[in-house]
Amino acid sequence: MNQIIEYLPFIIPIIAVEFILMIVSLVHMLKHKKFRFGNQAMWIIIVVFVQIIGPILYFTIGRGEE
């Protein structure tokens, strides 16, 4: 228990950043529905289950042209 309290200043920000990235990519995805490759289901799984890296991949190579 002590250990968890010691690491709380780490865990909370990391979870917050993961959560922000996930929500922002999901919102963007549902609004635009265009992908350079793959489909929406695939990208939802990647963004939700691959923390941090998933949203980065979505925004840098996955999302469709404007």
Partner: peptide, 8 residues
């Protein structure tokens, strides 16, 4: 969203 990614 590139700024968001870089800073995250």
């Amino acid at each position: 969203y590139r700024m968001l990614i870089l800073f995250s």
